[in-house]
Amino acid sequence: MNKKEMANPRDAYGETLVELGGKYRDIVVLDADLSKSTKTILFAKKYPERFFEMGIAEANMISTAAGLASCGKIPFASSFAVFATGRVYDQIRIDVAYSRANVKIFATHGGISVGKDGASHQMIEDLTLMRVLPNMTVLAPSDAIQTRRLVELMATTEGPMYARIGRANAPVLYKKEDLKDIKIGKGLVVKDGSDVSIIACGTMVAQAVDAQEKLSQDGVSARVVDMYTIKPLDEKLVIKCARETNAILTVEEHSVIGGLGGAVSEVLAENGSPTKFKRMGVQDMFCESGEPEELFEKYGLSTPHIVKTVKKLIK
């Protein structure tokens, strides 16, 4: 694992679409005037006849994608997380989830690391909104390599799916071989440890790995779980962590309500787990403009915050 190397998951998404587009002729891509940012433009250039520019009309994009899916197409519909979910919740609910349409909603710019655009563009509720929908699978890839693998799995697995990545470059956590057997519905133990399990998703996995290193220098043995599937949640892994480590901390670039932390807490509570538990994420508030690192620092999602929280939790 070499986490100094950086890569952009958005590039990974666009490039993977191009690769898959050659292999699967039924893949079609829709975007709502953000193709340069979401990187679907790469697909648009290679397969213009299978790319649909929908303009700034997200509702129409989602329902159109469902219509395409009803004819056997595999539509990937992309926009920023804020516009790809909240803006079009009703279209996703009826045309995608209720209809079990084979639509893949792939959102970029999730979370607060969108940065300077401010709270209007920092989507911290999407995992919750998508998780509550029956039939919906929810994914949050943690780096560019995992993004590639999960986009492949999305294309080849039937059913409604939502995935979100961030805007920024992200440390590369994996080699391609590490991920050849990953499955939707599972999480991945990235680092093993016995004192605490840090269950993270998306951009926060890299932060958790950094925190794990600092903690080990201080004599704390932390396990890091990359919970790239938010739904269906890998409940077995959560319970295993609860049994094998004394505490669980969830970390997500998302509201603490209803996302990864919410999902994990439901499993722990229903299983009567006595394990100490804490959710890290955005504390039920809108954030603000700023550099991603400044925002992580101010809103409690930086590596030092994780280290501090773990120490307090296991005390």
Binding site: V28, F52, A59, N60, M61, I62, S63, T64, A65, A66, G67, L68, A69, S70, C71, G72, K73, P75, Q91, D95
Partner: peptide, 9 residues
């Protein structure tokens, strides 16, 4: 919109 999707396909 859904019908448009069918027509595009």
């Amino acid at each position: 919109s859904f019908a448009n999707g069918i027509a595009l396909a």
